[in-house]
Design a protein around this nucleic acid. Structure first.
Lengths: 119, 119
DNA sequence: TAAAAATACTCCATAGGTATTTTAT
DNA sequence: ATAAAATACCTATGGAGTATTTTTA
């Protein structure tokens, strides 16, 4: 299974149309059809009812939807978390020192660092 | 981004080794290396510190991990949800009837169905 | 020196595009 | 008759493998 398939699935459901989903994804309609078909083949269930005029979710599609959304959300949050690290909002520093320094000097330095550090 | 990359990421982190992750994934070590490299390239951050002997997560890797896990979990739950539909544990039925039937007959039938239906 | 990761390279599968056909209203 | 999805077909990208080199402990 691929994230691109999940994305197509969500867009088709949202737009109720393969063509409009294709526009939203900057793809052609046959590409979207292929993504959905390969997803359906892998899952072994039809996800959409295409009755010519309208495209609607099947029961399987409805059941799958919230999980597909969660997967994409998780990925998005993952990249956001990386950004946070990149901007120094999260991270770790390892500091080594000899025993006496570690015991008597560092604690005071850490306190001063905490208090001096901008919000 | 691809689910295969996330899977490789999680396995390498878990095994602390590209080779052992490759075994777990039934892939070769160069394939795993490629998956990780393409993921790192896309994210723009190194996810693992490879110091020859040991492979450990970077800060970015640590930040990304829970989200990668959530994404894969969501996909797994998605397929589980589909299975539930397939086994009839979830689904919907549309029933149409003329006004008087719908008003006077169906409610009683539904009650009997609920009560007769096996756990 | 030995292990593990990275690189070089080749091949094939597949994803995407264009053009066209099918289908349902 | 028309609009939208499906299909046919082609091409190119990239993912996986094998063989090899690099690295570091």
């Amino acid at each position: 299974m691929e994230l691109a398939q999940l994305e197509a699935f969500i867009q088709v459901a949202h737009h109720r149309s393969f063509s409009r989903a294709a526009d939203a994804l900057f793809l052609t309609q046959p590409s979207v059809t292929a993504r959905i078909q390969s997803l359906e083949r892998e899952i072994g269930e039809r996800l959409f009812e295409r009755t010519g005029r309208s495209v609607t979710l099947t029961d399987a599609g409805h059941a799958f939807m919230p999980h597909a959304q969660r997967a994409l959300t998780a990925v998005q949050e993952g990249t956001d978390a990386i950004d946070a690290v990149r901007h120094g909002e999260v991270g770790s520093i390892r500091i080594g020192a000899s025993p006496s320094i570690a015991t008597y000097v560092l604690p005071g330095l850490f306190r001063r660092f905490r208090e001096a550090r901008p919000r």
